[in-house]
Design a protein around this nucleic acid. Structure first.
Lengths: 151, 151
DNA sequence: TTAATTTATATCGTTCACGATGCAAAATTA
DNA sequence: TAATTTTGCATCGTGAACGATATAAATTAA
């Protein structure tokens, strides 16, 4: 009976993995004009919520490793949306702050969440049903955050 | 208050993206000994379910592009788990089949789904609650599968 | 104070994921 | 049959993710 579970259709993780990829794809029409990738958009969300944060705080909020975030930030700096300055008290830190361009982008990005909701409702039915997954996803994330291979 | 929706905590996609990454991380203890990555494991699932499939069928089942799957298969062939042969009727096709080594691996992988269920229950509470997301995830996937940027 | 350890970030190598493009074999149309 | 289009797969370039490792600054211990 164990073989039965080895079927693709019985795999929750495959669905999460696929849903995440496709949902990220749904952001493309809105992020492409801004020149942002989805992970870069996440960084912008973090910075719009609070400017001037060390790399570590950003990585922590996104549940990513710094070796993922650092190159991400380097590309974003090159694009002119953020800058990275040495920390004053702790000079190991790199403080990430928005440039003027980065601040202005917030206005253009303002409607992305509603656009996405609309798209999802149009294509995948009820947004409510999707929102109902949030507490479960949060529990899952919280539970797996500190397992062996996730830190 | 459009800005409110720009908060990270209000984003469903971020949760999907994170849950997918962390769940994939939870597979590591079981896949590492076999030398498999998670996407490679997915390919093995597809082939264990039905051997000898063209690249396109595999890509289609995993909802991936062939330009993602092709290099994946090349690495798996080099590892000795699969082989790729020219199609008989249609010589454009590459038929992917399991090697002896690939077939044997199924036995070792047999218990991975149960192990993962156990891990999730231990760390993230109820597996039932997680299973309840499946219909919603399926609707989401089905709905987004054929949008502009997802083909 | 000096030495050992921890912390914050960066670099490197490998593997996805995917848009764009290329190419040859098949299918379709003229 | 010849020309055109489509299809199946591959290659290339870019941007994540992440394990492993490196480095310098801060912290702690000796």
């Amino acid at each position: 009976m164990a073989y039965e579970q080895l079927k693709l259709e019985n795999q929750v993780c495959f669905r999460l993995y696929t849903a995440a990829r496709l949902t990220m794809g749904a952001y493309h029409p809105y992020l492409d004009p801004l020149g942002l990738t989805y992970p870069q958009y996440l960084v912008m969300l973090v910075l719009w919520e609070q400017d001037k944060q060390p790399v570590n705080d950003i990585a922590h909020k996104l549940l990513l490793e710094t070796n993922t975030v650092t190159p991400l930030l380097q590309r974003m700096e090159k694009a002119g949306w953020i800058k990275r300055t040495k920390g004053k008290e702790d000079s190991r830190q790199r403080i990430v702050s928005l440039t003027e361009k980065g601040v202005e982008m917030r206005e253009q990005a303002k409607h992305i969440p509603e656009c996405l909701s609309a798209d999802i409702i149009k294509n995948a039915g009820s947004a409510e049903e999707i929102m109902q997954m949030i507490p479960t996803l949060d529990k899952l994330i919280e539970g797996l955050k500190h397992t062996t291979h996730n830190k």
